[in-house]
Nucleic acid binder design. Structure first.
Length: 523
RNA sequence: GCGGAAGUAGCUCACCUGGUAGAGCGACAGCUUCCCAAGCUGUAGGUAGCGGGUUCGAGUCCCGUCUUCCGCUCCA
């Protein structure tokens, strides 16, 4: 474990030292949980994007891409459930250091009260289920003979009603008073020693001029917490203009923003991050089949990079998000342990249905295909959705983690070591380094010709400084798979030495084959 | 949020009991090198996270603050 932690630190240092990832605004002491990608990091990131984008939009003929705006109409987030589910006031117990959602704290307390009500056997016959009673907030019936609700149950009900009122007004002072007056204690510490109530907003918001709404307070717009909604609101646009037939998918790569309560662990959990999402629209009732299909397809994509299977695993969600009827993560064995890199969710028709409700626009698809069971067209329905959502930054970290290797190359005579990034060839920021063995005797000129020949096909890097060994090692450190070295012999027979990053082996090849050899492995 | 540790050149660190900063690597320039880092010469680069205090004098002591790391907690 300690070793893994060191390894993680080493990767972070390496990422900074070699221009992959810098802390944001570092000269001002940084900005917590925000990072910038440097000269090689941006290349690597772009290559990961391309690998994903091309595999989605080219390899599947029924998937198209979009690029939706980060700003969306505020109602989007009401429909998606983000406002109701992620804008909760929180309170901390000073003794146990536990943090609670205020509504959960009070509801749990109220449930306990109701339970005592039940155990006192004055539970009304028609209220079979206490949980249901609490959820529905059903009015307690007028007391009838032998069926007296307890004072506790009455109390629970009135506190909940009061809570709803206060929540609606965002009256945090009142809520805290309510907690204290009813002696609602922390289940862990059993004390009533609470901090003030604070609002934790998952979503970032910003001002949007004054034209969004005539309502005074409604010029607030959010920075999207997920890219998916940009796809959902464009579902009909794409379906109609692209003449898409279900099943089909819409892919998108873009930034999303979340206010994490604790945001650490390098680029694993950032406030501003990038998602690669694909929403796949399907007929209702077929979600199990497609969910399994996409689980398999996505794993294939990962394994296509040549990263061994044992580094991956599926983690099935037991507790599901408000929009899902099945969900799993693809987890990778990072140096900090197995962590989620991608989620595959069966989102049902939750999103489209809600957008239909809030927007009053039909989100239906007319399916002309014949249902073999009835011999008639399937007709109108709101499609179900399978989502695949991968964190680009996490994928970046995954690739770096897997590629990073410290090697001891010591021999009996000499101590030696190197740090090499064994990046998949197609993701490497630089594909080919062109190195004149010495910077005289016309060698640089030949090397420049190789550069001119290759640089339009893939990214090349020219360097004539320092000893050849040093230059090789520098290329290892940024994961360049090939180096070619021009020497005196090149002038005689037009061959160069090609040196492979992973094996450090060298071959003599004709100058004319360089482009072909490199091109072949980076596609 | 809590506890612990740390913040000195690009990086890793040194300056022990206070007297106005050093090394290695790296970078740059040149030399040497015909194939895997640490051969030679030269140059540049720090007012010691930031603010305040004690002192004749502080990187070195005290306080505050910010940031990072480790552990716990929390969130998902």
């Amino acid at each position: 474990m300690a070793n893994d932690s060191n390894r993680f630190q080493a990767i972070i240092s390496h990422a900074k030292e070699y221009g992959f990832v810098f802390p944001s605004s570092e000269i001002y002491d940084g900005l917590q949980a925000v990072y910038d990608y440097g000269q090689w990091g941006s290349e690597l990131k772009k290559n990961i994007k391309d690998y994903w984008w091309d595999s989605m939009t080219r390899m599947y003929e029924n998937i198209v891409g979009i690029d939706a705006a980060i700003f969306m109409h505020p109602t989007t987030w009401k429909a998606s459930g983000h406002i109701d589910n992620f804008n909760d006031p929180m309170i901390d117990n000073k003794d146990s250091k536990k943090r609670y959602r205020v509504d959960h704290l009070i509801e749990t307390w109220a449930e306990d009260k109701a339970f005592s009500f039940k155990t006192k056997k004055v539970y009304p016959e028609h209220l079979k289920d206490v949980q249901g009673f609490m959820d529905e907030r059903i009015d307690i019936p007028n007391p009838t003979e032998g069926n007296q609700p307890s004072d506790d149950a009455q109390k629970a009900k009135s506190v909940l009603e009061e809570m709803d009122k206060l929540l609606a007004k965002d009256d945090f002072v009142g809520l805290k008073k309510l907690i204290e007056e009813n002696d609602i204690r922390c289940p862990i510490s059993e004390t009533c020693n609470w901090t003030d109530i604070r609002q934790f907003n998952l979503m970032f918001s910003t001002e949007f001029g004054s034209t969004v709404s005539s309502e005074d307070e409604d010029n607030k717009v959010y920075l999207r917490p997920e890219t998916a909604q940009g796809i959902f609101v464009n579902f009909l646009n794409v379906q109609k203009t692209g003449r898409m037939k279900i099943p089909f998918g819409i892919a998108q790569i873009g930034k999303a923003f979340r206010n994490e309560i604790v945001a650490r662990q390098f680029i694993f959990r950032m406030r501003e991050f990038e998602q690669m999402e694909m929403q796949f629209f399907i007929p209702p009732g077929t979600q199990k089949k497609w969910y399994e299909f996409w689980k398999e397809e996505r794993m294939k994509w990962h394994l296509g990079l040549g990263i061994p299977k044992e580094n991956y695993r599926f983690h099935n969600h037991v507790k599901l998000a408000h929009y899902a009827d099945a969900a799993c993560d693809i987890e990778f064995n990072f140096p900090i342990g197995f962590k989620e890199v991608e989620g595959i969710h069966s989102r049902t028709d939750f999103d489209l249905k809600n957008h239909q409700e809030y927007s009053k626009k039909k989100m239906q698809y007319f399916d002309n295909d014949i249902d073999p069971a009835t011999g008639k067209p399937y007709g109108n329905y709101i499609p179900y959705v399978i989502e695949t959502s991968i964190g680009l930054d996490r994928m970046f970290l995954l690739v770096m983690s897997h590629a990073y290797e410290e090697q001891d190359l010591s021999t009996a005579e000499k101590q030696d070591s190197r740090v090499v990034l064994k990046l998949p060839n197609k993701l490497a920021p630089v594909k080919l380094a062109v190195l004149p063995l010495v910077k005289k005797d016309g060698l640089p000129e030949i090397a420049r010709k190789i550069m001119d020949d290759c640089k339009s096909s893939f990214r090349c890097f020219y360097e004539e400084k320092d000893t050849i060994g040093k230059r090789y090692r520098r290329m290892d450190a940024i994961g360049t798979p090939f180096c070619v070295t021009v020497d005196q012999q090149t002038k005689e027979d037009n061959t160069v030495t090609i040196r492979y990053r992973d094996t450090m082996q060298q071959d003599r090849i004709p100058l004319s084959q360089i482009k072909e050899i490199v091109s072949k492995v980076i596609l």
